[in-house]
Amino acid sequence: MSVVLEVKGLTKMFGKRAAVNKASFEVNSGEVFGFLGPNGAGKTTAIKVIMGFLSPDEGEVIINGTNVQKNYEAAMENIGGIVENPEMYRELSGRKNLEMYARIHNNVPKGRIEEVLRIVGMENRADEKIKKYSLGMRQRICLAQALLHRPNLLILDEPTNGLDPAGIKELRDILKHLAHEENVAVMVSSHMLAEMELMCDRVGIINNGKILGIMPIDELLHKTSGDSCYHIKTNDSAACSELLEASYGSGSVKLIDGNSLELSVSEAEVPSVVRLLTENGFDIFNVSPAENSLEDAFISITGGGNSIA
């Protein structure tokens, strides 16, 4: 793994407001890096600065060892991306749009256009005009364009917009393949946390322009809870809940539904819990550790303003 994208102390001001405030992070080859944050956190602004739409007020962006501000053309040579809702030229077909893009790059061989069209599943619709495409189809063509010149850094801002569930799964598989098999550095920003949980290797969380933390996703999911939490499946979770509250305190029990509850205890106390319930006549079907979701982690971090570093 090598560093493909380095962002150092990046700051972007809009008037007096810092949309991005001394943000620093790296994206490595062979990983999918998730860039998370609530609306208005500064994700898209940061991506726009990286890709040259906006100029930074402070800091620098280095892609493949080349400073974007100092040598724009060389820096952008191996980068592909989708930013916000990109549009192609509506009067031209998908294929024509790709041909135009390929013309600008040095290294797009013949046949590559067909290849990327197959990757995104647009080979049968490529000769229709863009204005006839649905949102999802336009998104696919934009992805095809981003992949055309085999970039080693792919930056995707909300790439799942407009895609159906099958399309989202396809995209996830494509990005994971690119990262893990073809060693591409992939940076994705999205609000679809469930997807990010399935797709990303590492995440960076941003809020109010500041990076709150960057770490592998597994670590993030386990880091936010103090005690372990166990999921118990029983025949009468309400009655169980009353019994457990009496022994362990009301704050440690959370009723899920008629058959399930969650109990916050240490691992050593699990056997005692099982004995208590069985001695009182309750049937226990399952006891397993309950993992935090990325959503829980995300809300707890960005809502509380806590850093996870």
């Binding site: 890709m51 739409f53 952008m76 549009e87 192609m88 600008i104």
Partner: peptide, 14 residues
């Protein structure tokens, strides 16, 4: 206005 400038801007051209 249409957003098609974006694909030009992210191309490796000044």
């Amino acid at each position: 206005a249409t957003g098609s400038i974006k694909s030009l801007i992210i191309s490796p051209v000044k």
